[in-house]
């Protein structure tokens, strides 16, 4: 933790003087976190180093969907649950991926495998309704996904790590 504290102090001092420093700092802290999220103790370090109230830091973090307050898996699978995707079967796809990974969505609509390999979450709409159903894997959008296609992709990701 001590190393991490030094890292965070360095991140804060790099951005400190810039306007809107807090956002850049939080972005960097999240990116450099092992599980791509902002744990409570790291937010305390940021607030203390930057000299801003804890409440303000939490306000910013909870405002932007970009910031994660829960540990994220190495691969992030985003299932669209918009109307178009729903009518084209996004619910069975979501159930399939959750079943494959053996996890269940929490109250925030998110789930991460205990080994932090995968995070699954939903979004309301990608704006790619013509390509429904749509699933994003690590930021890459896959269109007209079928259960077979999905299974293949996830198996490939799982195998890749095991083989490495």
């Amino acid at each position: 933790m001590n190393d991490r504290a030094n890292e965070i102090a360095a991140i804060v001092s790099k951005h400190r003087e810039r306007h809107g420093a807090l956002l850049s700092i939080l972005e960097t802290v999240q990116r450099t976190n092992e599980h791509n999220y902002l744990p409570k103790q790291e937010l305390v370090m940021v607030a203390k180093e930057l000299g801003v109230p804890l409440s303000q830091v939490y306000s910013v973090v909870t405002f932007y969907a970009f910031f994660n307050l829960k540990a994220q898996g190495e691969h992030v699978i985003t299932v669209c649950r918009g109307t178009a995707c729903h009518t084209r079967g996004s619910k069975p796809l979501l159930d399939k991926v959750l079943h494959m990974l053996g996890i269940e969505l929490d109250e925030d609509g998110m789930a991460t495998t205990p080994d932090y390999r995968f995070t699954v979450h939903t979004v309301a709409c990608f704006g790619q309704c013509a390509l429904a159903p749509v699933i994003a894997i690590d930021g890459v959008i896959h269109s007209m996904v079928t259960e077979e296609k999905l299974t293949t992709m996830i198996e490939a990701l799982s195998a890749h790590k095991e083989g490495a």
């Binding site: 109230p53 804890l54 409440s55 303000q56 939490y58 306000s59 909870t62 405002f63 932007y64 969907a65």
Partner: peptide
């Protein structure tokens, strides 16, 4: 004091 803030969106 900044004990409270608007949280979430």
């Amino acid at each position: 004091v900044h004990a409270i803030e608007m949280m979430g969106r």
